[in-house]
Nucleic acid binder design. Structure first.
Lengths: 207, 207
DNA sequence: TTATATACAAACATGAATGTATGTAAACCC
DNA sequence: GGGTTTACATACATTCATGTTTGTATATAA
C-alpha cells in the first residue's frame, strides 16, 4: 500500500482528521500521540507527518472544518432581512445552532474537545484571541438585531439593546457549554430549545 | 536544608500548591512537569512527591482550596433570609462572586486554569460529574430564590421560576467564562457588575 | 538519650513520544 | 515508457518526564 491517486490522498487526509478528533475526544489533545491517531486512522505516523507538520496543525484543521461553516451561517441567519422580525430571527439563529449540534456528531465532538479537552497555552493561545474576535462579531450582530427590534417597537421600553445583546450572548455561551457538557444528553439537552424561546419571550413586548 | 518542623513542612506544602498554580497557568496542566513546579517552589521533585503522590493530586488540592469556600459562601448569600428581598440577594450573590474574583488572584488564576488550561479526561473526568452536581446545586438555590420572589409578587406575571432560574444560571456561567477569559481586564470585566444588575432588572416587576 | 519516623535531596532506571531520515512503489508528466 | 515526484512505511536518534529508590540530617517521642 503505497502511492495513491490524488483523490485517495485527500481521503486519507480527511480520515486522519477524523481519527484525530476521535482520539482527542477520548484522551484529550495533549495525551493523544501521533501513534494513537495513526492507529485510529489505519495508517502510520509517516502518513500523518506527510499531511500535517505536527499535532497543532492537525488540531487547527479539525477546528476549521466545523467553525468556518458556523460563521457563514451566522451572517445568513442573523443579518439577512427576511420575512421574520428581528427577535424571531435571533431565536432561529440560536435554535439553529442547537440543531446543528444535534445533527452533526462532528460538530458536537469538536466543540467538546475545544471546551473541555484542550489547553489554551503556547501555540494554542492565539486561538483565544481568535475566539474573542468571533465573540465580538456575534455580539455586534446581536446588537444590530436588538436595535432593529427596538426601532420596530418590539422591546419593552426600559430595555436597552446593548445590555440585552450582551445578556443574550452570555446566556447563549452558557447554554452551549451546558449543552456540550451534557454528553449523554439525558439532563439538559432536551430543554435547550425551550430555554431559548423563554429567553426571547422575556424580551418581547406583547403586541 | 533537611528535616523541618511540622509547621515548616506545612508551609512548603502550601508553597508547592502555589507554585503549581503559577506553573499550570503559564504552561497548562499537562505540559507542566514536576520539575517546573519544583523549580518554581524552590524545592526538588523529592519534596513534591513527599507531599503529593502525583500531579493530579496537586491539581485537586489547588482546586479545593478555592472551590470549597465558594460553596459555603453560596449557601450563606443565597438561602439565609436577611433584610433583603430575594432578587436583591441573588444580585448580591452574583456580584459577590465577581468581587471575589476581583479580590483574589488565587481564585482568578485557579478559575482560568480550570476553564482554559486543563483537559477533562481520564482521572480528570470525575471532575465533570462533580462540576455538574455543583451546578444543579446552584440551579436549585436560584430556583428557590425565584419561587420566593414570585410568591412575594416581585416578578412579572408571565415569568415562571424554573425558566428564570436556568436563564440566570446560564447567563452567569457565560459571564464567568467571559470574565475569566478577559485576562488583562480591558475588554469585559469593567461592565460585569452592570450586566448583572441589568439582568436582574429585566425580571423585577416595578412596584 | 537514643531510637525512630519525618521531610526532604539526589541518584537511578525506565519508558515513551517526537521529529527526521531513509526507503519504496506506484502515479503522473512529458 | 522512463524519469520524477508523490504518498506514504519503516527505521533511527534524541529528548525528556515519571516514579522509585536510596541517602541523610534533624525533629520528635519514649
Amino acid at each position: 500500500m503505497v502511492r495513491k491517486t490524488k483523490e485517495d490522498a485527500e481521503l486519507t487526509r480527511e480520515s486522519i482528521i477524523d481519527a484525530a478528533r476521535e482520539a482527542f475526544l477520548a484522551r484529550g489533545v495533549s495525551r493523544t500521540t501521533m501513534e494513537h491517531i495513526a492507529t485510529q486512522a489505519g495508517v502510520t505516523r509517516g502518513a500523518i507527518y506527510w499531511h500535517f507538520s505536527n499535532k497543532t496543525e492537525l488540531f487547527l484543521a479539525m477546528r476549521e472544518r466545523v467553525l468556518l461553516p458556523l460563521i457563514d451561517r451566522m451572517d445568513d441567519t442573523l443579518l439577512v432581512e427576511g420575512s421574520d422580525d428581528p427577535l424571531t430571527r435571533l431565536e432561529n439563529f440560536l435554535c439553529g445552532t442547537i440543531q446543528q449540534l444535534n445533527d452533526s456528531a462532528e460538530t458536537r465532538q469538536t466543540y467538546e474537545i475545544m471546551m473541555m479537552k484542550c489547553e489554551y497555552v503556547d501555540e494554542f493561545e492565539p486561538l483565544l484571541q481568535q475566539i474573542h474576535s468571533t465573540c465580538s462579531g456575534i455580539h455586534e450582530k446581536m446588537l444590530t438585531i436588538y436595535e432593529r427590534a427596538k426601532n420596530k417597537g418590539h422591546l419593552h421600553d426600559n430595555q436597552n439593546p446593548g445590555d440585552l445583546a450582551m445578556d443574550t450572548h452570555l446566556f447563549f455561551s452558557g447554554l452551549l457549554h451546558m449543552w456540550v457538557k451534557d454528553t449523554n444528553g439525558t439532563i439538559f439537552r432536551h430543554q435547550a430549545i425551550e430555554l431559548v424561546k423563554s429567553h426571547i419571550k422575556l424580551r418581547r413586548k406583547p403586541a
